[in-house]
Nucleic acid binder design. Sequence first.
DNA 1: TTTCCTTACGCCTATCGTAAGCATA
DNA 2: TATGCTTACGATAGGCGTAAGGAAA
Lengths: 296, 296
Amino acid sequence: MKFTLAQILSFIAVAENLHFGKAAEELNMTQPPLSRQIQKLEKSIGVQLFERNNRNVTLTPAGESFLAEAYGLLASVERAPRRAQKIAEGAWGQITIGCTAVSSFGVLGDLLSRMADRLPGVSVEIAEMVTAEEVKALSEGLIDIGLGRPDRVPSIVETTQIHSERLVVAVPAHHEFAGRTSVASSEIANQTLIMHSPTKARYFYDLTVRYIDVGANEIAHSLSQILTIVNLVAAGRGIAIVSESASSLRVDGVSYIPLSDVPDDVVELHAIWNPESRNPALRQVIDLIRNENLSA
Amino acid sequence: MKFTLAQILSFIAVAENLHFGKAAEELNMTQPPLSRQIQKLEKSIGVQLFERNNRNVTLTPAGESFLAEAYGLLASVERAPRRAQKIAEGAWGQITIGCTAVSSFGVLGDLLSRMADRLPGVSVEIAEMVTAEEVKALSEGLIDIGLGRPDRVPSIVETTQIHSERLVVAVPAHHEFAGRTSVASSEIANQTLIMHSPTKARYFYDLTVRYIDVGANEIAHSLSQILTIVNLVAAGRGIAIVSESASSLRVDGVSYIPLSDVPDDVVELHAIWNPESRNPALRQVIDLIRNENLSA
DNA sequence: TTTCCTTACGCCTATCGTAAGCATA
DNA sequence: TATGCTTACGATAGGCGTAAGGAAA
Protein backbone atom coordinates (compact mmCIF):
# COMPACT_ATOMS: atom_id res chain seq x y z
CA MET A 1 0.00 0.00 0.00
CA LYS A 2 1.49 3.27 -1.09
CA PHE A 3 0.92 6.85 -0.14
CA THR A 4 -0.17 9.61 -2.47
CA LEU A 5 1.19 13.02 -3.28
CA ALA A 6 -1.85 14.60 -1.67
CA GLN A 7 -0.87 12.86 1.53
CA ILE A 8 2.62 14.28 1.27
CA LEU A 9 1.24 17.78 0.84
CA SER A 10 -1.06 17.21 3.78
CA PHE A 11 1.80 15.95 5.88
CA ILE A 12 3.97 18.94 5.08
CA ALA A 13 1.17 21.37 5.88
CA VAL A 14 0.53 19.73 9.25
CA ALA A 15 4.24 19.48 10.02
CA GLU A 16 4.70 23.17 9.28
CA ASN A 17 1.69 24.32 11.27
CA LEU A 18 1.68 21.65 13.94
CA HIS A 19 -2.03 22.24 13.93
CA PHE A 20 -4.55 20.28 11.89
CA GLY A 21 -7.07 23.10 11.70
CA LYS A 22 -4.64 25.68 10.38
CA ALA A 23 -3.09 23.19 8.00
CA ALA A 24 -6.50 22.28 6.64
CA GLU A 25 -7.29 25.93 6.07
CA GLU A 26 -3.97 26.32 4.24
CA LEU A 27 -4.90 23.36 2.06
CA ASN A 28 -8.38 24.74 1.42
CA MET A 29 -10.12 21.83 3.01
CA THR A 30 -11.73 20.91 6.31
CA GLN A 31 -9.95 19.18 9.18
CA PRO A 32 -11.60 15.76 9.09
CA PRO A 33 -10.32 14.61 5.69
CA LEU A 34 -6.92 15.97 6.60
CA SER A 35 -6.85 13.86 9.74
CA ARG A 36 -7.78 10.85 7.66
CA GLN A 37 -5.04 11.57 5.13
CA ILE A 38 -2.43 11.67 7.86
CA GLN A 39 -3.77 8.50 9.40
CA LYS A 40 -3.64 6.75 6.06
CA LEU A 41 -0.14 7.99 5.43
CA GLU A 42 1.04 6.72 8.79
CA LYS A 43 -0.63 3.40 8.19
CA SER A 44 0.83 3.03 4.72
CA ILE A 45 4.41 3.61 5.84
CA GLY A 46 3.90 1.83 9.15
CA VAL A 47 5.35 4.60 11.28
CA GLN A 48 3.78 7.21 13.51
CA LEU A 49 4.72 10.65 12.21
CA PHE A 50 2.99 12.89 14.74
CA GLU A 51 2.61 12.67 18.47
CA ARG A 52 -0.79 14.15 19.04
CA ASN A 53 -3.12 14.44 21.98
CA ASN A 54 -6.09 16.72 21.71
CA ARG A 55 -4.12 19.71 22.87
CA ASN A 56 -0.95 19.77 20.79
CA VAL A 57 0.74 18.18 17.80
CA THR A 58 4.45 17.41 17.52
CA LEU A 59 6.60 15.58 15.02
CA THR A 60 8.12 12.28 16.08
CA PRO A 61 11.80 11.74 15.16
CA ALA A 62 10.60 9.53 12.33
CA GLY A 63 8.34 12.37 11.29
CA GLU A 64 11.27 14.78 11.23
CA SER A 65 13.09 12.43 8.90
CA PHE A 66 10.03 11.99 6.76
CA LEU A 67 9.57 15.74 6.55
CA ALA A 68 13.06 16.19 5.17
CA GLU A 69 12.35 13.52 2.57
CA ALA A 70 8.98 15.02 1.81
CA TYR A 71 10.55 18.36 0.99
CA GLY A 72 12.92 16.63 -1.40
CA LEU A 73 10.06 14.76 -2.94
CA LEU A 74 8.08 17.92 -3.42
CA ALA A 75 11.06 19.61 -5.02
CA SER A 76 11.30 16.71 -7.47
CA VAL A 77 7.61 16.88 -8.22
CA GLU A 78 7.89 20.53 -9.11
CA ARG A 79 11.15 20.21 -10.97
CA ALA A 80 10.18 17.31 -13.22
CA PRO A 81 7.47 19.11 -15.22
CA ARG A 82 9.49 22.30 -15.44
CA ARG A 83 12.40 20.48 -16.97
CA ALA A 84 10.19 18.64 -19.40
CA GLN A 85 8.60 21.92 -20.43
CA LYS A 86 11.93 23.61 -20.93
CA ILE A 87 13.10 20.76 -23.10
CA ALA A 88 9.89 20.72 -25.10
CA GLU A 89 10.24 24.37 -25.92
CA GLY A 90 13.88 23.85 -26.81
CA ALA A 91 15.19 26.15 -24.11
CA TRP A 92 16.98 23.29 -22.46
CA GLY A 93 18.50 20.26 -23.94
CA GLN A 94 21.46 18.93 -25.73
CA ILE A 95 22.71 19.40 -29.23
CA THR A 96 25.46 17.36 -30.74
CA ILE A 97 27.20 19.17 -33.53
CA GLY A 98 29.23 17.29 -36.05
CA CYS A 99 31.82 19.43 -37.75
CA THR A 100 34.80 19.18 -39.98
CA ALA A 101 38.09 20.33 -38.54
CA VAL A 102 38.20 23.35 -40.79
CA SER A 103 34.77 24.64 -39.88
CA SER A 104 35.80 24.89 -36.29
CA PHE A 105 38.23 27.70 -37.07
CA GLY A 106 35.84 30.56 -37.42
CA VAL A 107 32.19 29.79 -37.66
CA LEU A 108 31.91 27.18 -34.97
CA GLY A 109 33.31 29.44 -32.28
CA ASP A 110 30.92 32.15 -33.39
CA LEU A 111 27.98 29.74 -33.35
CA LEU A 112 28.89 28.42 -29.94
CA SER A 113 29.18 31.83 -28.36
CA ARG A 114 25.86 32.90 -29.84
CA MET A 115 24.28 29.73 -28.54
CA ALA A 116 25.74 30.33 -25.11
CA ASP A 117 24.24 33.80 -25.28
CA ARG A 118 20.80 33.04 -26.69
CA LEU A 119 20.23 29.44 -25.65
CA PRO A 120 22.02 29.21 -22.32
CA GLY A 121 20.17 26.04 -21.31
CA VAL A 122 21.31 24.04 -24.30
CA SER A 123 24.49 22.11 -23.75
CA VAL A 124 26.59 21.30 -26.75
CA GLU A 125 28.74 18.38 -27.71
CA ILE A 126 31.11 18.49 -30.63
CA ALA A 127 32.01 15.51 -32.74
CA GLU A 128 34.65 15.84 -35.42
CA MET A 129 33.85 14.18 -38.70
CA VAL A 130 33.83 14.82 -42.41
CA THR A 131 30.70 15.79 -44.31
CA ALA A 132 29.96 12.30 -45.62
CA GLU A 133 30.10 10.92 -42.09
CA GLU A 134 27.88 13.72 -40.90
CA VAL A 135 25.04 12.65 -43.15
CA LYS A 136 25.26 9.13 -41.83
CA ALA A 137 25.51 10.34 -38.25
CA LEU A 138 22.46 12.54 -38.78
CA SER A 139 20.35 9.68 -40.01
CA GLU A 140 21.49 7.54 -37.11
CA GLY A 141 20.72 10.27 -34.64
CA LEU A 142 24.32 10.47 -33.46
CA ILE A 143 24.44 14.18 -34.18
CA ASP A 144 21.68 16.74 -34.44
CA ILE A 145 23.32 19.16 -36.78
CA GLY A 146 26.34 19.03 -39.02
CA LEU A 147 28.55 21.81 -40.29
CA GLY A 148 29.89 20.84 -43.65
CA ARG A 149 30.14 21.42 -47.34
CA PRO A 150 26.97 21.49 -49.43
CA ASP A 151 28.39 18.81 -51.66
CA ARG A 152 26.66 15.50 -52.30
CA VAL A 153 24.14 15.93 -49.54
CA PRO A 154 21.10 13.69 -50.00
CA SER A 155 17.72 15.31 -50.20
CA ILE A 156 16.42 13.78 -46.99
CA VAL A 157 18.35 16.32 -44.96
CA GLU A 158 17.72 20.03 -44.89
CA THR A 159 20.51 22.57 -45.19
CA THR A 160 21.06 26.26 -44.86
CA GLN A 161 24.13 28.23 -45.70
CA ILE A 162 25.88 29.44 -42.64
CA HIS A 163 28.97 31.07 -44.03
CA SER A 164 30.88 31.69 -47.23
CA GLU A 165 34.42 32.71 -47.87
CA ARG A 166 37.12 33.11 -50.49
CA LEU A 167 39.59 30.72 -51.92
CA VAL A 168 43.13 31.89 -51.30
CA VAL A 169 46.55 30.67 -52.34
CA ALA A 170 48.76 29.52 -49.52
CA VAL A 171 52.37 30.18 -50.40
CA PRO A 172 55.63 29.81 -48.48
CA ALA A 173 57.66 32.85 -47.36
CA HIS A 174 60.02 33.23 -50.28
CA HIS A 175 57.69 32.26 -53.05
CA GLU A 176 57.36 34.54 -56.05
CA PHE A 177 53.74 35.32 -55.01
CA ALA A 178 54.64 36.25 -51.46
CA GLY A 179 53.90 39.88 -50.78
CA ARG A 180 51.45 40.17 -53.66
CA THR A 181 47.98 41.49 -52.77
CA SER A 182 46.25 39.20 -55.23
CA VAL A 183 46.90 36.50 -57.77
CA ALA A 184 44.89 35.65 -60.87
CA SER A 185 44.02 32.00 -61.28
CA SER A 186 45.65 31.97 -64.69
CA GLU A 187 48.96 32.85 -63.08
CA ILE A 188 48.95 29.56 -61.29
CA ALA A 189 50.77 27.47 -63.81
CA ASN A 190 54.05 25.64 -63.65
CA GLN A 191 53.69 25.56 -59.87
CA THR A 192 53.96 22.63 -57.55
CA LEU A 193 50.42 22.25 -56.23
CA ILE A 194 49.48 20.50 -53.02
CA MET A 195 45.99 19.34 -53.75
CA HIS A 196 43.05 18.28 -51.63
CA SER A 197 42.25 14.65 -52.00
CA PRO A 198 39.64 14.02 -54.73
CA THR A 199 38.05 11.37 -52.55
CA LYS A 200 38.34 12.52 -48.97
CA ALA A 201 38.06 16.26 -49.60
CA ARG A 202 36.13 16.19 -52.80
CA TYR A 203 34.46 19.54 -52.27
CA PHE A 204 37.78 21.42 -52.23
CA TYR A 205 39.18 19.27 -54.97
CA ASP A 206 36.24 20.15 -57.21
CA LEU A 207 36.50 23.83 -56.35
CA THR A 208 40.18 23.84 -57.16
CA VAL A 209 39.86 22.16 -60.53
CA ARG A 210 36.94 24.41 -61.41
CA TYR A 211 39.01 27.56 -61.09
CA ILE A 212 42.57 26.42 -61.64
CA ASP A 213 43.99 24.65 -64.64
CA VAL A 214 45.60 21.93 -62.60
CA GLY A 215 46.98 20.30 -65.69
CA ALA A 216 49.39 23.17 -66.02
CA ASN A 217 50.88 22.41 -62.61
CA GLU A 218 52.70 19.60 -60.99
CA ILE A 219 50.64 17.85 -58.32
CA ALA A 220 52.78 17.14 -55.30
CA HIS A 221 50.41 15.57 -52.81
CA SER A 222 46.82 14.73 -52.35
CA LEU A 223 45.64 15.28 -48.81
CA SER A 224 42.54 15.72 -46.79
CA GLN A 225 43.80 17.45 -43.67
CA ILE A 226 44.06 21.18 -44.08
CA LEU A 227 46.68 21.41 -41.35
CA THR A 228 48.91 18.95 -43.14
CA ILE A 229 48.52 20.84 -46.38
CA VAL A 230 49.49 24.16 -44.82
CA ASN A 231 52.44 22.61 -43.06
CA LEU A 232 53.68 21.20 -46.33
CA VAL A 233 53.37 24.66 -47.83
CA ALA A 234 55.42 26.05 -44.95
CA ALA A 235 58.02 23.40 -45.64
CA GLY A 236 58.32 24.71 -49.17
CA ARG A 237 56.88 21.62 -50.83
CA GLY A 238 54.54 23.69 -52.97
CA ILE A 239 51.59 26.03 -52.92
CA ALA A 240 47.97 25.19 -52.18
CA ILE A 241 44.49 26.48 -52.83
CA VAL A 242 42.71 26.63 -49.51
CA SER A 243 39.78 28.38 -47.92
CA GLU A 244 40.52 31.73 -46.35
CA SER A 245 39.67 30.50 -42.87
CA ALA A 246 42.79 28.35 -43.06
CA SER A 247 44.72 31.57 -42.55
CA SER A 248 43.60 31.49 -38.94
CA LEU A 249 45.94 28.53 -38.54
CA ARG A 250 48.81 31.02 -38.42
CA VAL A 251 51.46 28.61 -39.52
CA ASP A 252 54.81 30.41 -39.62
CA GLY A 253 56.16 31.22 -43.03
CA VAL A 254 52.90 30.84 -44.91
CA SER A 255 51.01 33.74 -46.42
CA TYR A 256 47.59 33.67 -47.99
CA ILE A 257 46.87 35.60 -51.14
CA PRO A 258 43.37 36.16 -52.52
CA LEU A 259 42.52 34.94 -55.99
CA SER A 260 41.50 38.02 -57.95
CA ASP A 261 39.22 36.35 -60.49
CA VAL A 262 37.38 33.87 -58.28
CA PRO A 263 34.11 34.95 -56.63
CA ASP A 264 34.38 35.88 -52.98
CA ASP A 265 31.88 33.34 -51.78
CA VAL A 266 32.76 30.12 -53.52
CA VAL A 267 33.60 28.22 -50.37
CA GLU A 268 30.32 27.56 -48.66
CA LEU A 269 29.75 26.15 -45.24
CA HIS A 270 26.28 24.80 -44.59
CA ALA A 271 24.43 23.60 -41.57
CA ILE A 272 22.74 20.30 -42.36
CA TRP A 273 20.18 18.54 -40.23
CA ASN A 274 17.48 15.95 -40.30
CA PRO A 275 14.14 17.75 -40.63
CA GLU A 276 12.43 14.82 -38.94
CA SER A 277 14.47 15.23 -35.80
CA ARG A 278 12.39 15.35 -32.67
CA ASN A 279 14.95 17.35 -30.74
CA PRO A 280 13.24 20.65 -29.91
CA ALA A 281 16.57 22.29 -29.17
CA LEU A 282 17.51 21.69 -32.80
CA ARG A 283 14.72 23.97 -33.98
CA GLN A 284 15.97 26.69 -31.72
CA VAL A 285 19.48 26.35 -33.04
CA ILE A 286 18.29 26.38 -36.64
CA ASP A 287 16.26 29.50 -35.94
CA LEU A 288 19.29 31.06 -34.34
CA ILE A 289 21.42 30.28 -37.36
CA ARG A 290 18.83 31.62 -39.79
CA ASN A 291 17.94 34.75 -37.91
CA GLU A 292 21.33 35.83 -36.75
CA ASN A 293 22.98 35.69 -40.14
CA LEU A 294 26.10 33.99 -38.94
CA SER A 295 27.92 34.66 -42.16
CA ALA A 296 28.11 38.35 -41.36
CA MET B 1 -3.48 20.68 -11.72
CA LYS B 2 -0.93 18.19 -10.52
CA PHE B 3 -0.09 14.68 -11.44
CA THR B 4 -0.31 11.66 -9.18
CA LEU B 5 2.13 8.95 -8.24
CA ALA B 6 -0.01 6.42 -10.06
CA GLN B 7 0.54 8.46 -13.20
CA ILE B 8 4.27 8.40 -12.59
CA LEU B 9 4.22 4.64 -12.24
CA SER B 10 2.14 4.39 -15.40
CA PHE B 11 4.53 6.64 -17.25
CA ILE B 12 7.56 4.62 -16.19
CA ALA B 13 5.93 1.38 -17.21
CA VAL B 14 5.04 2.72 -20.65
CA ALA B 15 8.46 4.32 -21.07
CA GLU B 16 10.15 1.04 -20.24
CA ASN B 17 7.97 -1.08 -22.46
CA LEU B 18 7.24 1.48 -25.17
CA HIS B 19 4.01 -0.44 -25.53
CA PHE B 20 0.77 0.46 -23.75
CA GLY B 21 -0.56 -3.07 -23.76
CA LYS B 22 2.51 -4.65 -22.18
CA ALA B 23 2.83 -1.82 -19.69
CA ALA B 24 -0.81 -2.23 -18.67
CA GLU B 25 -0.25 -5.92 -18.11
CA GLU B 26 2.78 -5.12 -15.98
CA LEU B 27 0.64 -2.75 -13.94
CA ASN B 28 -2.14 -5.29 -13.62
CA MET B 29 -4.67 -3.17 -15.40
CA THR B 30 -6.21 -2.86 -18.87
CA GLN B 31 -4.92 -0.55 -21.59
CA PRO B 32 -7.67 2.07 -21.71
CA PRO B 33 -7.20 3.52 -18.23
CA LEU B 34 -3.47 3.49 -18.79
CA SER B 35 -3.88 5.54 -21.95
CA ARG B 36 -6.00 7.96 -20.02
CA GLN B 37 -3.46 8.22 -17.23
CA ILE B 38 -0.75 9.13 -19.66
CA GLN B 39 -3.00 11.63 -21.39
CA LYS B 40 -3.83 13.23 -18.08
CA LEU B 41 -0.20 13.36 -17.10
CA GLU B 42 0.73 15.00 -20.37
CA LYS B 43 -2.10 17.47 -19.98
CA SER B 44 -1.21 18.30 -16.40
CA ILE B 45 2.40 19.09 -17.18
CA GLY B 46 1.56 20.58 -20.54
CA VAL B 47 4.09 18.57 -22.47
CA GLN B 48 3.86 15.62 -24.81
CA LEU B 49 5.87 12.77 -23.34
CA PHE B 50 5.34 10.11 -25.97
CA GLU B 51 5.28 10.24 -29.71
CA ARG B 52 2.69 7.63 -30.58
CA ASN B 53 0.84 6.55 -33.64
CA ASN B 54 -1.11 3.35 -33.63
CA ARG B 55 1.93 1.35 -34.55
CA ASN B 56 4.71 2.40 -32.22
CA VAL B 57 5.46 4.43 -29.14
CA THR B 58 8.60 6.47 -28.51
CA LEU B 59 9.70 8.92 -25.87
CA THR B 60 10.02 12.57 -26.82
CA PRO B 61 13.13 14.39 -25.56
CA ALA B 62 10.95 15.97 -22.89
CA GLY B 63 9.77 12.47 -22.04
CA GLU B 64 13.36 11.29 -21.70
CA SER B 65 14.01 14.03 -19.20
CA PHE B 66 10.80 13.32 -17.38
CA LEU B 67 11.70 9.65 -17.19
CA ALA B 68 14.96 10.45 -15.46
CA GLU B 69 13.10 12.67 -13.01
CA ALA B 70 10.46 10.01 -12.55
CA TYR B 71 13.07 7.46 -11.54
CA GLY B 72 14.45 9.91 -9.01
CA LEU B 73 10.98 10.61 -7.74
CA LEU B 74 10.28 6.94 -7.37
CA ALA B 75 13.55 6.41 -5.53
CA SER B 76 12.55 9.17 -3.10
CA VAL B 77 9.11 7.71 -2.66
CA GLU B 78 10.60 4.39 -1.72
CA ARG B 79 13.34 5.80 0.44
CA ALA B 80 11.24 8.16 2.52
CA PRO B 81 9.28 5.49 4.37
CA ARG B 82 12.35 3.31 4.82
CA ARG B 83 14.17 6.17 6.47
CA ALA B 84 11.28 6.97 8.74
CA GLN B 85 11.09 3.31 9.73
CA LYS B 86 14.80 3.18 10.50
CA ILE B 87 14.51 6.21 12.75
CA ALA B 88 11.53 4.70 14.49
CA GLU B 89 13.62 1.59 15.09
CA GLY B 90 16.24 3.64 16.85
CA ALA B 91 18.75 4.74 14.24
CA TRP B 92 19.60 8.39 14.65
CA GLY B 93 20.77 9.19 11.16
CA GLN B 94 20.94 7.95 7.61
CA ILE B 95 23.25 8.33 4.70
CA THR B 96 22.68 7.45 1.10
CA ILE B 97 25.93 6.82 -0.71
CA GLY B 98 26.13 7.06 -4.46
CA CYS B 99 28.97 5.08 -5.91
CA THR B 100 30.30 3.88 -9.20
CA ALA B 101 30.40 0.14 -9.65
CA VAL B 102 34.16 0.06 -9.48
CA SER B 103 34.47 1.99 -6.24
CA SER B 104 32.40 -0.60 -4.50
CA PHE B 105 35.12 -3.21 -4.90
CA GLY B 106 37.51 -2.14 -2.24
CA VAL B 107 36.94 1.16 -0.58
CA LEU B 108 33.22 1.03 -0.10
CA GLY B 109 33.34 -2.15 1.94
CA ASP B 110 36.04 -0.64 4.10
CA LEU B 111 34.06 2.55 4.57
CA LEU B 112 30.91 0.65 5.42
CA SER B 113 32.56 -1.51 8.04
CA ARG B 114 34.19 1.52 9.64
CA MET B 115 30.85 3.27 9.69
CA ALA B 116 29.21 0.25 11.27
CA ASP B 117 31.94 0.31 13.89
CA ARG B 118 32.10 4.02 14.66
CA LEU B 119 28.64 5.25 13.70
CA PRO B 120 26.41 2.31 14.53
CA GLY B 121 23.29 4.46 14.66
CA VAL B 122 23.61 5.56 11.07
CA SER B 123 21.80 3.45 8.54
CA VAL B 124 23.27 3.36 5.08
CA GLU B 125 21.81 2.98 1.64
CA ILE B 126 23.75 2.51 -1.55
CA ALA B 127 22.79 3.81 -4.98
CA GLU B 128 24.84 2.86 -8.03
CA MET B 129 25.56 5.66 -10.48
CA VAL B 130 28.40 7.29 -12.41
CA THR B 131 30.18 10.40 -11.20
CA ALA B 132 28.26 12.83 -13.39
CA GLU B 133 24.99 11.46 -12.09
CA GLU B 134 26.29 11.70 -8.55
CA VAL B 135 26.71 15.44 -8.82
CA LYS B 136 23.17 15.78 -10.10
CA ALA B 137 21.87 13.42 -7.44
CA LEU B 138 23.69 15.40 -4.76
CA SER B 139 22.08 18.64 -5.81
CA GLU B 140 18.69 16.97 -5.93
CA GLY B 141 19.12 15.45 -2.49
CA LEU B 142 18.88 11.91 -3.77
CA ILE B 143 22.21 11.00 -2.22
CA ASP B 144 24.19 12.52 0.63
CA ILE B 145 27.65 11.54 -0.45
CA GLY B 146 29.15 10.26 -3.66
CA LEU B 147 32.23 8.17 -4.28
CA GLY B 148 33.64 9.10 -7.62
CA ARG B 149 36.42 10.49 -9.74
CA PRO B 150 37.66 14.02 -9.07
CA ASP B 151 37.14 14.88 -12.69
CA ARG B 152 34.89 17.74 -13.82
CA VAL B 153 33.25 18.23 -10.48
CA PRO B 154 31.59 21.64 -10.14
CA SER B 155 32.76 23.91 -7.36
CA ILE B 156 29.45 23.87 -5.51
CA VAL B 157 30.30 20.48 -4.05
CA GLU B 158 33.09 19.70 -1.65
CA THR B 159 35.44 16.77 -2.12
CA THR B 160 38.15 14.92 -0.28
CA GLN B 161 40.39 12.18 -1.54
CA ILE B 162 39.51 8.85 -0.08
CA HIS B 163 41.77 6.44 -1.92
CA SER B 164 44.31 6.22 -4.69
CA GLU B 165 45.61 3.30 -6.68
CA ARG B 166 47.66 2.21 -9.66
CA LEU B 167 46.83 1.75 -13.28
CA VAL B 168 47.43 -1.82 -14.41
CA VAL B 169 47.25 -3.63 -17.71
CA ALA B 170 44.61 -6.31 -17.94
CA VAL B 171 45.79 -9.04 -20.28
CA PRO B 172 44.37 -12.42 -21.26
CA ALA B 173 45.98 -15.67 -20.17
CA HIS B 174 48.24 -16.36 -23.14
CA HIS B 175 49.20 -12.82 -23.97
CA GLU B 176 52.86 -11.98 -24.39
CA PHE B 177 52.69 -9.84 -21.22
CA ALA B 178 51.11 -12.56 -19.09
CA GLY B 179 53.45 -13.61 -16.30
CA ARG B 180 55.47 -10.41 -16.43
CA THR B 181 55.80 -8.51 -13.16
CA SER B 182 55.60 -5.13 -14.83
CA VAL B 183 55.18 -3.47 -18.18
CA ALA B 184 56.46 -0.10 -19.32
CA SER B 185 53.90 2.14 -20.96
CA SER B 186 56.12 2.43 -24.01
CA GLU B 187 55.83 -1.32 -24.56
CA ILE B 188 52.15 -0.93 -25.20
CA ALA B 189 52.24 -0.46 -28.92
CA ASN B 190 50.79 -2.49 -31.74
CA GLN B 191 48.31 -3.93 -29.29
CA THR B 192 44.57 -4.12 -29.58
CA LEU B 193 43.36 -1.81 -26.84
CA ILE B 194 39.95 -1.93 -25.26
CA MET B 195 39.41 1.66 -24.19
CA HIS B 196 37.13 3.37 -21.75
CA SER B 197 34.52 5.52 -23.41
CA PRO B 198 35.72 9.11 -23.83
CA THR B 199 32.27 10.38 -22.91
CA LYS B 200 30.88 7.98 -20.33
CA ALA B 201 34.13 7.12 -18.59
CA ARG B 202 36.09 10.21 -19.39
CA TYR B 203 38.29 10.09 -16.33
CA PHE B 204 39.80 6.75 -17.29
CA TYR B 205 39.91 7.68 -20.92
CA ASP B 206 41.93 10.77 -20.10
CA LEU B 207 44.23 8.83 -17.81
CA THR B 208 44.85 6.24 -20.48
CA VAL B 209 45.68 8.69 -23.21
CA ARG B 210 47.91 10.64 -20.83
CA TYR B 211 50.17 7.69 -20.17
CA ILE B 212 49.77 5.50 -23.23
CA ASP B 213 50.41 6.40 -26.83
CA VAL B 214 47.05 5.18 -28.01
CA GLY B 215 47.87 6.15 -31.55
CA ALA B 216 50.32 3.28 -31.71
CA ASN B 217 47.59 0.78 -30.93
CA GLU B 218 44.42 -0.42 -32.47
CA ILE B 219 41.34 0.58 -30.54
CA ALA B 220 38.90 -2.28 -30.38
CA HIS B 221 36.05 -0.97 -28.29
CA SER B 222 35.03 2.00 -26.27
CA LEU B 223 33.15 1.04 -23.14
CA SER B 224 32.07 2.40 -19.83
CA GLN B 225 31.47 -0.73 -17.77
CA ILE B 226 34.63 -2.08 -16.22
CA LEU B 227 33.15 -5.56 -16.00
CA THR B 228 32.44 -5.57 -19.71
CA ILE B 229 35.94 -4.41 -20.43
CA VAL B 230 37.53 -7.13 -18.34
CA ASN B 231 35.29 -9.76 -19.84
CA LEU B 232 36.34 -8.69 -23.32
CA VAL B 233 39.94 -9.02 -22.21
CA ALA B 234 39.19 -12.51 -20.95
CA ALA B 235 37.67 -13.30 -24.33
CA GLY B 236 40.94 -12.34 -25.97
CA ARG B 237 39.59 -9.28 -27.73
CA GLY B 238 42.46 -7.13 -26.57
CA ILE B 239 44.16 -5.68 -23.55
CA ALA B 240 42.93 -2.83 -21.38
CA ILE B 241 44.27 -0.23 -19.00
CA VAL B 242 42.23 -0.42 -15.82
CA SER B 243 42.50 0.54 -12.18
CA GLU B 244 44.09 -2.00 -9.91
CA SER B 245 40.91 -2.54 -7.95
CA ALA B 246 39.46 -4.14 -11.06
CA SER B 247 41.66 -7.10 -10.24
CA SER B 248 39.29 -7.92 -7.42
CA LEU B 249 36.81 -8.89 -10.10
CA ARG B 250 38.68 -12.18 -10.43
CA VAL B 251 37.61 -12.86 -13.95
CA ASP B 252 39.12 -16.15 -15.06
CA GLY B 253 41.96 -15.93 -17.51
CA VAL B 254 42.80 -12.30 -16.92
CA SER B 255 45.92 -11.13 -15.17
CA TYR B 256 46.77 -7.62 -14.11
CA ILE B 257 50.26 -6.27 -14.59
CA PRO B 258 51.44 -2.99 -13.05
CA LEU B 259 52.72 -0.25 -15.30
CA SER B 260 56.30 0.38 -14.23
CA ASP B 261 56.60 3.99 -15.30
CA VAL B 262 53.25 5.36 -14.19
CA PRO B 263 52.94 6.83 -10.67
CA ASP B 264 51.32 4.55 -8.11
CA ASP B 265 48.55 6.95 -7.18
CA VAL B 266 47.19 8.23 -10.47
CA VAL B 267 43.74 6.75 -10.04
CA GLU B 268 42.03 8.81 -7.40
CA LEU B 269 38.76 8.14 -5.70
CA HIS B 270 37.12 11.07 -3.97
CA ALA B 271 34.19 11.53 -1.68
CA ILE B 272 32.01 14.37 -2.91
CA TRP B 273 29.14 15.97 -1.06
CA ASN B 274 27.00 19.04 -0.92
CA PRO B 275 28.39 21.32 1.80
CA GLU B 276 24.95 22.84 2.26
CA SER B 277 23.39 19.55 3.24
CA ARG B 278 21.47 19.64 6.49
CA ASN B 279 21.87 15.95 7.14
CA PRO B 280 23.64 15.74 10.52
CA ALA B 281 24.88 12.23 9.78
CA LEU B 282 26.78 13.51 6.75
CA ARG B 283 29.15 15.57 8.94
CA GLN B 284 29.89 12.51 11.02
CA VAL B 285 30.70 10.45 7.97
CA ILE B 286 32.91 13.15 6.47
CA ASP B 287 34.81 13.42 9.74
CA LEU B 288 35.18 9.67 9.80
CA ILE B 289 36.59 9.66 6.28
CA ARG B 290 39.01 12.49 7.01
CA ASN B 291 40.25 11.20 10.34
CA GLU B 292 40.53 7.53 9.57
CA ASN B 293 42.65 7.94 6.46
CA LEU B 294 40.80 5.37 4.45
CA SER B 295 43.42 5.37 1.76
CA ALA B 296 45.80 3.49 4.07
C1' DT C 1 -17.22 25.25 28.58
C1' DT C 2 -14.05 25.69 24.87
C1' DT C 3 -10.72 23.79 21.79
C1' DC C 4 -9.55 20.63 18.41
C1' DC C 5 -8.56 16.00 16.81
C1' DT C 6 -11.39 11.93 15.45
C1' DT C 7 -15.36 9.09 13.81
C1' DA C 8 -19.87 8.69 11.10
C1' DC C 9 -22.62 9.43 7.05
C1' DG C 10 -24.17 11.09 2.45
C1' DC C 11 -22.64 13.04 -1.94
C1' DC C 12 -19.71 13.30 -5.69
C1' DT C 13 -15.76 12.87 -8.47
C1' DA C 14 -12.49 9.86 -10.55
C1' DT C 15 -10.85 5.58 -12.10
C1' DC C 16 -11.61 1.07 -13.47
C1' DG C 17 -13.21 -2.51 -16.84
C1' DT C 18 -15.88 -3.80 -20.93
C1' DA C 19 -17.04 -2.66 -25.49
C1' DA C 20 -16.79 -0.14 -29.63
C1' DG C 21 -13.93 2.99 -32.76
C1' DC C 22 -10.32 3.66 -35.87
C1' DA C 23 -5.83 3.98 -38.09
C1' DT C 24 -1.85 1.42 -39.81
C1' DA C 25 0.84 -2.47 -41.70
C1' DT D 1 -7.36 -8.61 -41.63
C1' DA D 2 -4.92 -8.03 -37.32
C1' DT D 3 -2.79 -5.19 -34.09
C1' DG D 4 -2.97 -1.68 -30.78
C1' DC D 5 -3.97 3.06 -29.14
C1' DT D 6 -8.22 5.80 -28.19
C1' DT D 7 -13.09 7.02 -27.06
C1' DA D 8 -17.67 5.77 -24.82
C1' DC D 9 -20.28 4.18 -20.99
C1' DG D 10 -21.81 2.07 -16.80
C1' DA D 11 -20.27 0.57 -12.12
C1' DT D 12 -17.64 1.23 -8.06
C1' DA D 13 -14.37 2.92 -4.78
C1' DG D 14 -12.32 6.63 -2.38
C1' DG D 15 -12.26 11.45 -0.90
C1' DC D 16 -14.61 15.59 0.61
C1' DG D 17 -17.82 18.12 3.56
C1' DT D 18 -21.19 18.34 7.27
C1' DA D 19 -22.38 16.66 11.62
C1' DA D 20 -21.64 14.37 15.83
C1' DG D 21 -18.18 12.41 19.38
C1' DG D 22 -14.76 12.80 22.95
C1' DA D 23 -10.68 14.17 25.64
C1' DA D 24 -7.96 17.99 27.67
C1' DA D 25 -7.48 22.84 29.57
